[in-house]
Structures are given as C-alpha cells and as structure tokens.
Design a protein around this nucleic acid. Sequence first.
DNA 1: AGAAGGACCAGTGGTCCGTA
DNA 2: AGAAGGACCAGTGGTCCGTA
Lengths: 300, 300
Amino acid sequence: TTPPDSSQHPLDALSQEGVQDKEVVGTGGGGGGRGNWEIMVAGGDTAAHHHHQIQQRKKYKKQQQGKTMIINTNRKGHIDHQQQQHFNNDGEMEEVEREEEEVEEVDDDSSGGVCRGGERQREHPFIVTEPGEVARGKKNGLDYLFHLYEQCREFLLQVQSIAKERGEKCPTKVTNQVFRYAKRAGATYINKPKMRHYVHCYALHCLDEETSNALRRAFKERGENVGAWRQACYEPLVAIAGRLQGWDIDAIFNSHPRLSIWYVPTKLRQLCHAQRSSSGPSTSVSGGARGGAGPDHLPF
Amino acid sequence: TTPPDSSQHPLDALSQEGVQDKEVVGTGGGGGGRGNWEIMVAGGDTAAHHHHQIQQRKKYKKQQQGKTMIINTNRKGHIDHQQQQHFNNDGEMEEVEREEEEVEEVDDDSSGGVCRGGERQREHPFIVTEPGEVARGKKNGLDYLFHLYEQCREFLLQVQSIAKERGEKCPTKVTNQVFRYAKRAGATYINKPKMRHYVHCYALHCLDEETSNALRRAFKERGENVGAWRQACYEPLVAIAGRLQGWDIDAIFNSHPRLSIWYVPTKLRQLCHAQRSSSGPSTSVSGGARGGAGPDHLPF
DNA sequence: AGAAGGACCAGTGGTCCGTA
DNA sequence: AGAAGGACCAGTGGTCCGTA
C-alpha cells in the first residue's frame, strides 16, 4: 500500500530476485511482529539490530558460489542466467525496478539478528524447554518455535486479505507465497524447511496441549535433544488420529482452525496409514462404537 | 488392483512415458465410461474403434525446436531423450516395465476414434446445440461437453479412493494427476486445455440450468459459433455471483458439489472482481438487504 | 554429532500457439 | 476463420545435503 522504495534495496547483482512477486504487507497491525519474543527469546545479539533493514537478498535460486572457478560452482553445476543478464549490457548495471511495494517490517530484534556488516546469522538451535521456560544461552525454546507457527498464520491472513482485495486466488495454506511474503516483511528467521520440519510437533501442541506439555517436561528432564523430542511427537499424534478419526490425519488437521493451514507432513501421513492397516480394518475406520470416520464435530 | 500387463502396451519407442505414475483405475464400476455417448455422439469414425487400445504415448515435454534439421521429426522437432535411451543398448530394446497397473479402459467408441493405423484424430469441434439435441456431422454437442465434466468428476472420485486406500495425499480438485489418470484409462478425448476452456460454461449449466438452456437456444437460433456462446456464458455467471455472494466466485464454486472440484478460471475471477469494484462497495459485498458475503446456505 | 536452511527438482497450474 | 490440444514455463511442494 505504500510505494516501492528501491533505495532500500542493495543493488547487488542478485537483487533481481523477487521481481515477479506482487504481494505487499498491508499496514494492518497485529500481524507478523515477533510480539514479545524480542525480549523472551534468548541468545540474540541484541547489539546489532537494524530496524527497517530490508533483509539480505542473497542468491535464492542458483548458487553461483564463488567457491572455485570459472563458469560456476553451483551445487550441481548450473550456469546462472540471471547474473549473465546483469552484466551483459556492459557495465550499465541495469537498475531493475522492483515491482513489490514497500513492506512494513516486523520489529526485528534479538535472536538471529544480523552480524554487523556480515552475513545474517542462522537462528540459534532449538532446545527442549518446558512450557513457559525461556531458553538461555544461544538457544531458542519450544514456545518460541510454536510462536513461529502463529506468525506464519498471521502472514497467511495478510496474504489472504490482500488477495481478496485484488480479486486474486486466495491461498488456504501456508504456501511458498506466504514464506516469501514473510521474508519480505523482514521475518527472515522464518523459512520453509524449518516450519515443515516441526509441523507435527506444533500439531500435537494444538490438539492436545496437556500431552504435548508432559512430553516436553519428560524429554527435558531426561536431557534429550530436540531431534529426539521431535521424533517422540509422532506417536501421540497417531494415537489421537486413530481415536478421533480412524487414522484420517487430514480430517484431524482440517478440523482444527490453526492446524488446517498446514500441509500434513508425509511421514505423519505414512505413520497413520501404517497404523490403520496394522490395527485391523474394523477397529475404527468404518465400524466400532463411534464409527470414527466422517465429518463429526471435534472439540475445536 | 489388477496386475500390470505390459503385453497390452505397444512397445513403441515412447512407451516409457508415464513410468513415474502410480495410480490405477479401480475396478469399481460406474466411473469413467462414456456412458451412452458412444451412441449419442455424432461424427465418430465408428468403423475404426479399438477396444482396450492404450492411448498413444508421444513425447510430452521439451521443445528443442528442430525448425531446421536433422536429428528428428517430431511434431516440434524434439529430440526424444527417452527414445535415445531406448536405442542406447544397441538393439536390445530394453523392455521398460511399466509401474502402473492395468487400467480398466473406458468403452471407447465413436467420436474421436483412431484412424486405422494412423494418428489419433482430434475430437470433432463443438457446436451450439439445444438441450437434448445431438450434433450431426463431424461435430459434438454441448450435452456431450458437459458430460465430459461429469466424467472427469468420476475419474477424480476414483483417484481419491485410490489415494485414500494407499494413505496418500488426496486431491480435492481435478488436477494434472486426474487428467493423466483419465488418459491412461483410455479417455484420450479428455485433456486439460479443453476442460479448462469451458469450465465457466459448465458452471452456468450447474448453477442455473434454465438460464444456460435459454442461452443455448438463443445462440443456436442466431447461428452463433461455439466461441461466441462461450463468451456469452460469462455474463450471467457474474450476475449470479453478484446476487448470491457479493461477487465472491470462489464461494459460488465451493458451494456447489459438482463445481467445487474445478478451479475458478482466471478470467471469470477477474470479471467478478471488476464488477464488484464498479458496482460500488456497498451494494452487496458487505451490506445491503441480504449481506451477500459469508457462508450462507445456497440452494445446493 | 546435532541442527538450520539454501537450493534443488519432479511434477503443477495455467495457457499459448503451432496445428488441422 | 474457428477450434482442439501438445507443449511450454513460471512458480510449487517437498526435502536433501552442503554448511556452520
């Protein structure tokens, strides 16, 4: 809604990336900010925050790593056409005008900030924390992890309202478009692989917070790492799906308003399928006391 | 559900196409057949039908414009990599085993049959017919067109039931996967560009058959061609969307069980958006006597 | 070793345009 | 000219694997 401001964009050779995007952050409040996580999240290099600093646009597709040599060094040896394009018109560094409009930056603070003048740091790794516990040291806790899912939801809501305004297709899920939007809005700590990686953990948190909390406490106490906790989240979820919907995990996701915007992870789907098969076709899938399947009203 | 039977597949150099597919036609009846269209559809080269003849698998990707030369003779001069692969192992014509299972062929007859020993013919073009009228000559009528949409729906239902059986992602729309499945089932006369082209005509037929029928009669009488009729289908649809849902065409599509499986055509969406904008934001979009927007119960 | 995320890739939605 | 559909292409879902 505000006009584009290309002065904010570093004119590196890769800034053409994103030209095809058209989304804008609406000025609407409430969405996208980190909320109080700027304080809660531990381990941030708080000395180095840059308000309204547009996120670094590095190569996003195509590696072009200066690593070694001639022609290229991509992970799989690609030639980068975009860059070639840039240097074609000898020297004239054709200033590509960005089509996107200015994005209202989230209040970017603390954890995962930008090293002064350097590359953006990776986010600190997660550790298993109890509910309410703030991670100390260069770590992030699980409340923060779940908070990221809420943020994504807010970004989706913004993308949806913009799409409706413009009469365009309206995503119902957290898609690539939403991740791109989040990044443009300055939430550079949100990315697709991370969010997809922990979806089922968030699902358990949504569907049965008691069980989720108990699991966190148990795994923290045992000193397990995040990977182990993550693995352990599958089982109670499968049990819930079996109990409530005859192992129809899609029905479970769709029945919950905060979960329905996330794609069901492949592995979770497979586990539910395997469990349904192995527990005999009559248990709940289309028979039994409660019948399982069907669009029943779940407690959400 | 039946085992693969590669003996049915002509071992031409192109039969590898589709190896990555995994869907199968369930033996379930009711789906996919042409129904009585084998009789109703006019213009078929009925002399030349081949039951259980697998559709021709030609190259599907890569242009490789041969404009000029040597190397090959495909329609667009492609170099067919699959073909290369086939002749690599000098002579041994490596019999590529198909991963797909046998597909229960639709009863393929009449219109758009196969010229004896030649290329598959294009379908006959549509002409504007009244409801119940059968096109004569090498033409197809509009009842047949709408019948194709019903067939696609049946193919989708089959794909869905297979996906559920296997615990895989289950499409809610007529996707590429469904078109591929239809083709493999022998419904070679179904293809994506055609179905997408006439979706809004089918939508009008679903949503207001009276209006749709009247339009067909009027355009037939005036001797208009299919293109003109197709264009004319937009307007009454937009009117319906405005009246019932404040120009929210997605809501309209989703509210109808046979329509909800089709993507809203871009142009229709744009027309609805334009209409909403130009008719003043207060007319029905969020005010007025009936309020328009919202998940109200439509008559479907 | 454990974890974060850039980059890749097969298959998608959408439709153009060479074809009949 | 009017129409059918093979083929293309930008951007997707999904996740691997080089990186820190």
